[in-house]
């Protein structure tokens, strides 16, 4: 034993112990418990939500997603950093706004990324779609917005058939053809690939395709799985499997004021948790906090009787 430890243990009696045996037993027990839990409860694997599924099951959501992207009114189009520079969108507390300072790191042009570019890839296969796209892109922005606005207005009355979307009579320019093309692309299962195209065979970043369905479509799919934020979804897995239970405090903050009512809730919760983490990290150095264990006396349950000298 080193002199240091001999000095530290002065007045303490020693007893035999076998750390390696304990470690091996711990391994056997943890592995055994894990194997039993895995065999009995398995694990969740809900397939990812696809535009194909949305096009078939909730066509109005897909049509709305496409039109709002074109209108520049989608959640992502109006998100602010890191996707774009939408003024006033970044979360901020009295001018403290790391989101703004970080700037646009993943630029996303919503109409292009989610609608126009994927349609352009498909247009090579469809002369009609090609003409419609050319017409749309040649039109002045004001006229595009008139078409999109008109279509968005009547969208609740639209019907959906095998070809795509049937809007009530009106002037939507080339939009009906574009929407049909969009639905065909989605139903074929190629929409995500068309959005993600990297210009290369290889692809490991799915940011844009994941952002396409991030609003209503994903929330509708998450609700029956009890995974919405308001359902404490952050610490849950599909079908009531336990998830990130250790995030209970983080999740709980979102449910109570001032966090639950703040438009900068994410920033507020993030800062609170960071501060609490820092306090936990520094407990040994904080008078008062570091005295709680001694005062609470809980240690006497562990170290039963003070040693006689």
């Amino acid at each position: 034993m080193s002199d240091r430890q001999r000095r530290y243990y002065r007045g303490i009696s020693m007893k035999p112990d076998d750390l390696l045996k304990e470690l091996v037993w711990a391994l056997v027990i943890v592995l055994g418990l894990g194997l039993i839990l895995a065999a009995v409860f398995s694990s969740p694997d809900e397939p990812a939500l696809t535009a194909q599924r949305v096009a078939k099951a909730e066509p109005s959501v897909l049509a709305g997603t496409a039109l709002r992207a074109l209108a520049g009114q989608s959640a992502i189009a109006e998100y602010g950093p890191p996707y774009n520079n939408q003024p006033g969108a970044a979360q901020s507390i009295g001018g403290f706004s790391p989101q703004t300072w970080a700037g646009v790191q993943i630029p996303i042009n919503a109409p292009k990324a989610f609608v126009l570019r994927p349609l352009a890839s498909a247009a090579a296969l469809s002369p009609n779609l090609k003409t419609a796209l050319l017409t749309y892109e040649a039109a002045p922005r004001s006229e595009q917005q008139v078409w999109v606005g008109a279509a968005l207005k009547v969208l609740p009355k639209a019907r959906y058939d095998a070809a795509g979307v049937v809007l009530p009579k009106g002037d939507y320019g080339p939009l009906p053809t574009m929407l049909d093309g969009y639905f065909q692309l989605a139903k074929s299962g190629l929409l995500e690939a068309a959005i993600n195209q990297s210009g290369s065979v290889y692809q490991t970043d799915f940011t844009q395709a994941l952002l396409l369905l991030q609003g209503q479509a994903m929330a509708d799919a998450a609700t029956p799985l009890h995974m919405l934020g308001a359902q404490w979804g952050m610490m849950r897995e599909p079908d009531n499997y336990p998830g990130a239970v250790w995030l209970w405090l983080y999740t709980a903050l979102y449910q109570v004021p001032p966090y639950s009512t703040s438009s900068s809730a994410d920033l507020l919760v993030g800062l609170t948790i960071s501060a609490l983490s820092l306090i936990l990290l520094l407990v040994p150095f904080i008078p008062g906090l570091r005295d709680i264990p001694r005062v609470s006396g809980i240690h006497r349950l562990i170290w039963r009787r003070p040693k006689e000298r």
Partner: peptide
């Protein structure tokens, strides 16, 4: 994103 790290540590 609210904490300013989303552009560098991109969950997507």
């Amino acid at each position: 994103n609210a904490l300013g790290v989303g552009g560098f540590f991109n969950l997507l």
